[in-house]
C-alpha cells in the first residue's frame, strides 16, 4: 500500500426516500503521473489511483476510470439518489494493487 493514503468522504447521515444528495470524496495520494523525470533524467514510473467507484447497497452510483492527469489528492463531487436506508460504499483502486475502502451509512 502506498504510504499515508487516507480516504475522506462527506455525505449526509440522513435523507428523504428518493432524495438526491451531494457527495464529496478526497483521498490523499500523490498521483505520480509517469510523465516526470527524476534528477538523473530517468522517468519516474506511474503510480496512481486508476479507478474510483461508489455503490449504494450494492447498486452502482458512479464508476470513474482515472488517468495521470487527475491532480494529487484526487477529489470528486457527484450526486446520489438515496432510495432507502443503507450504506454508501466507496472504493479506490491503486496501480500497486492496493484497494482503499470507506463506508457511510445513510438513514431514510
Amino acid at each position: 500500500m502506498a504510504e499515508g493514503v487516507r480516504p475522506r468522504v462527506k455525505a449526509p447521515g440522513s435523507a428523504e426516500a428518493g432524495e438526491i444528495v451531494m457527495i464529496k470524496t478526497l483521498i490523499s495520494h500523490k498521483m505520480e503521473s509517469g510523465q516526470r523525470r527524476d534528477s538523473d533524467g530517468d522517468l519516474i514510473p506511474r503510480s496512481i489511483i486508476n479507478r474510483f467507484t461508489c455503490d449504494f447497497n450494492g447498486t452502482n452510483v458512479l464508476d470513474v476510470e482515472m488517468h495521470g492527469a487527475i491532480s494529487t489528492n484526487p477529489y470528486f463531487e457527484f450526486d446520489v439518489k438515496i432510495p432507502e436506508s443503507g450504506d454508501l460504499q466507496f472504493t479506490w483502486y491503486d496501480d500497486d494493487g492496493s484497494v482503499y475502502e470507506e463506508v457511510k451509512s445513510v438513514k431514510v
Binding site: I20, D55, V61, D63, A69, I70
Partner: peptide, 20 residues
C-alpha cells in the same frame, strides 16, 4: 483524464474533479 460512468443510482449525470 477520466471517464465517468453513471450507474443506476446516480443522482444526476454530473461530476466534478481537479485535473492537471
Amino acid at each position: 483524464v477520466a471517464t465517468f460512468n453513471f450507474g443506476e443510482l446516480s443522482g444526476s449525470q454530473s461530476a466534478s474533479t481537479r485535473i492537471r
